[in-house]
Structures are given as C-alpha cells and as structure tokens.
Design a protein around this nucleic acid. Structure first.
Length: 183
DNA sequence: TGGACGATCCCCT
DNA sequence: GGGGATCGTCCAT
C-alpha cells in the first residue's frame, strides 16, 4: 500500500479512493469523500496516551483497518497510517455510494447511507470483526485512485472532539453532496 | 471494582 | 438545538 506516512498527508491522499466491501457475491462500493487525521502527538487521538488493547492496531503497519466501538452502539472505521510503532490513523467520515446501494439501504434501514462515520459502517456491515484487517484484500479493500488536485480538497476542523478542536485536520471533496451533514 | 465518558445518530421540540 | 440510547474501555480508587 502506497500511503504517505503523516496522518494529514494520508487523510488528503485517501480522498477519492474506493472502499470495496465484499459480502457474499455482492460488492458494496463507496468513494471516500471526507476524512480526519489523528496522530499520536495529537491529544484528540486515541493513540495520544500510548498503546492499549483497544488502539493497538494504530501502532502497527499502515494499510490496516482500525475499527472501534463507541457510544455503546456505533462503529467507526479508520485506515492506519505511519510507520510501525507510531500510532496514527485516518478516520473515514463519509463515502459517496458507487455500487450496492440497495444492500446499503437494507443495512441502514433509511436513505442517508454513508454521510457519517458510523452510518457508513452500518451501510457496509463493518464491525469489530473487521478490526485489524489488511485492506489490500477482500472482504474489505482499499483501492487507491489518482491523487486529487489541491483545489478539489477543502480543509476544516474536526467534528465531535474536545481537544485540539481548532486544528485544520478534516478534509473533504469540495462541493460533494455526500459529505457528512455537520460539514 | 466502579464510574465517567466517548472521533455518533436519531428523534423531539 | 437538545437530550437519550447504550456499553466497552480506561483510569482512579
């Protein structure tokens, strides 16, 4: 996997890339349109206080999934980046549905499919069983697409955090209607 | 061993 | 705009 090492660079690089979730003989495909960067030096990051059982994947090799459970009912999906031993990852906040919308709608039970980090996990049936999964292979695949032009990428502050809330570490594709509502 | 809290979402007003 | 759902994780006691 050819990802930049820094979380910010990785968050920008992942925009426009495809997530391919294979379920049986179906492929649910989404294009990444919104990301957030979380680095070990950042107090808002799960990795800030060092390695624990929960966040261990963040300290492993890049190109692996970090899926965590939160608020007693939701999962969020990250792409691990950075060198092994350094805890950093990119939260995938929103996808543009490309294929398998019928299955996504059935998984979600409503029509807004993937415009939020927990929504897209529900739409793609991503849960803790897919934590630490190598994203170079099914059933959860990251397919890098050509890098977007800087003019296509909009920068903003992250959502739902307390610490370092002012830092410009959220990135999304300009004018894309599938970016999460708060964006 | 317990309690506070969370990288959210949905419904109600 | 505000609060409730709901439970695993982590740290303080």
């Amino acid at each position: 996997m050819d990802l930049p090492e820094s979380a910010v660079d990785c968050a920008r690089r992942l925009l426009g890339s495809l997530i391919v979730r294979t379920i049986g003989n179906k492929q649910l495909i989404g294009r990444i349109v919104e990301t957030e960067a979380y680095d070990q030096s950042d107090k808002a990051s799960h990795s800030y206080r060092g390695q624990t059982k929960r966040n261990a994947v963040m300290f492993g090799p890049a190109g692996v999934s970090y899926v965590y459970f939160t608020y007693g009912m939701h999962y969020c999906f990250n792409v691990v980046c950075g060198p092994s031993g350094h805890g950093s990852a990119v939260l995938i906040r929103a996808l543009e549905p490309i294929d398998g919308q019928r299955e996504m709608r059935a998984n979600r039970g409503r029509d807004d499919l993937t415009n939020g980090p927990a929504k897209l996990c529900q739409a793609l049936s991503i849960d803790q069983k897919l934590n630490s999964h190598d994203l170079s292979k099914p059933p959860l695949l990251l397919k890098l697409e050509p890098e977007l032009k800087p003019s296509q990428i909009q920068t903003a502050t992250r959502i739902g955090i307390r610490d370092n809330a002012h830092l410009p570490r959220r990135f999304f594709i300009r004018d894309n209607p599938f970016v999460s509502k708060s964006g």
